[in-house]
Amino acid sequence: MTENNNPLRAACAQTYSATANAGPSSMATDATQRRIIRLPEVCRLIGLSRSVVYARIKQKQFPAPIKLGYSSGWIESEVQAWIDGRIDATRNAASPV
């Protein structure tokens, strides 16, 4: 079988071109929704300390982490949704009626 007639090579090339045409924005959305982030990154994203994060979790005011064996992590999309909620609450409270 010659290289030009290799069905596996053709299938791989077709899959690659379909993925390349999808663009980085569609792939980034899937990756962001499923990304697990650790506490230092959570603190960096929201601008609060570790102790404040855990206090807000206890008060049910911040998303709880998921267990990763001996460690914990947060689902990035849940943290981002919390940030968006804080922005909306601040903007709506500050806007005149």
Rank of each mutant, 00 (worst) to 15 (best):
A20N: 07
R38Q: 07
D30A: 14
R86L: 12
L68Q: 11
E41Y: 02
P65N: 04
A13Q: 11
R35L: 02
P24G: 10
G69Q: 06
I75L: 08
V52N: 10
S25I: 15
N4E: 15
S77G: 09
A18K: 14
I46F: 06
S25E: 09
S72K: 05
T32Y: 14
S95N: 07
P65I: 00
S49V: 06
I37C: 02
T15S: 14
G23N: 07
W74E: 01
E76Q: 10
G73C: 02
S26V: 12
A28N: 10
Y70M: 15
R35H: 06
T90R: 09
R56L: 07
S17M: 15
N92I: 11
V53S: 02
G85K: 07
F62L: 05
P40A: 01
Q80N: 05
S49P: 03
G23T: 04
A28Y: 08
A55H: 08
N6D: 11
K67I: 07
Q14M: 08
I37D: 02
I37G: 00
P7L: 05
A55E: 05
I57R: 00
Q61S: 13
E76N: 00
E78D: 14
C12G: 15
R86Q: 11
L39R: 02
R91Q: 12
A13V: 07
R38F: 09
G73V: 03
V79P: 00
T90E: 15
T15V: 08
S77W: 00
M27N: 13
A31T: 13
N92K: 14
A18L: 14
A81K: 00
E41L: 03
D88E: 04
K58A: 13
R91M: 12
R91A: 13
I66M: 09
I75Q: 01
L45P: 01
T32K: 14
R9C: 10
S17E: 15
P65L: 01
G47H: 03
I36T: 00
N92T: 08
R50F: 05
A10K: 04
I57S: 01
A93V: 12
A55C: 13
R86M: 07
R34V: 10
L39Y: 00
G73K: 01
R86H: 04
G23I: 05
A28W: 02
T2W: 15
K67T: 12
V79I: 04
R86F: 08
T19A: 13
Q59D: 04
R50L: 15
P24L: 08
V97C: 12
L8F: 11
T19L: 13
R86E: 12
I46G: 01
N4R: 05
A22Y: 03
I83F: 03
R9H: 12
Y54H: 06
A22K: 04
C43G: 02
R34C: 09
E78F: 10
C43A: 05
Q61F: 10
M1C: 09
V42Y: 00
Q14K: 12
I75F: 04
I66Y: 08
T19S: 15
A81P: 00
A94V: 02
A89I: 05
A31W: 04
N4K: 14
S72F: 06
D30W: 14
S51L: 05
G69C: 05
A64L: 06
S17T: 11
A11W: 03
E41K: 02
D30M: 15
S49T: 03
G85M: 01
T15M: 11
I57Y: 05
R91V: 12
F62S: 01
E76I: 02
I83W: 03
S25P: 09
Q80K: 03
